[in-house]
Amino acid sequence: MCISEGIRDFDGIAEKLQKITSRVFTIDFHCPEIAHGSSPGQFVMIRFKDRLDPLLGRPFAVASAKGDSFSVWFQVVGKMTALLSEVSPGEKFTVRGPLGNGFGEPSGDKLFLVAGTLGVAPLLKVYEEFSGRLDCEVHLGVPDKTWKPFTEQVRQLIPGLRIFSDDGSLGVHGTCLHGLPGEIGQREEIWACGPVGMLKALAERYPQNRSGIRVSLEARMACGIGGCQGCVIETVEGKRRVCVDGPVFSSEEVAWDEIR
């Protein structure tokens, strides 16, 4: 029984928890419908089945899919992620998805994939999907060298990864925008995900090229299906819902001046 483009609440079973740093983890969930049915940039809302606290699902990008399982990457930031960091294999979850528009198809033949820390999650799936047929150059920014195990983990999946750190203690000194070219060519695009300040800086850096930049945004969400209006952001067309109108927006759609 399909709902909107196949969106449903599926059963998901935690298969494997991997600790990457003291604060960063990945979990593989067995959930064939999402593993086979989601495209790069789409996300799911994950909640503990039959628990009323935490109450709502939390949005996580689908970072990769293998067989009947998909994986998510996260940093411990609150109650839900703290609980997830202690999950046991076999634990049952509800997985709502696949949600959101995703990145869509590239329009040129080169992609710059630009990530701030955990913003790399959706871009891993982009890389998985597109690196075979076009040039994907991946730039990852982290605060400092305590993130080394994280960057190593990403490098295993993306051999040519370029690493930047705010304090210069890992990779090149600078943010993930540091190594990008001065101008984006006709056949090139930037796809990015990370803290909103970074995405705004990206938009400001290429005022003429905003149509060539796609950004994946985050928001607090309750429903994930466009019902509650809880996740809106300011765009040039007024408020729009990150969960169904996004999470990926063209940089020219976003009203950056009104975003804090």
Binding site: D53, L55, R220, M221, C228, Q229, G230, C231, V232, K239
Partner: peptide, 17 residues
């Protein structure tokens, strides 16, 4: 901010959009 989870609850301030 429009939504905020509490223990077994949800605060919302959507404002009739």
């Amino acid at each position: 901010t429009r939504i905020w989870e509490t223990p077994a609850g949800l605060l919302n301030s959507i404002g009739l959009q």
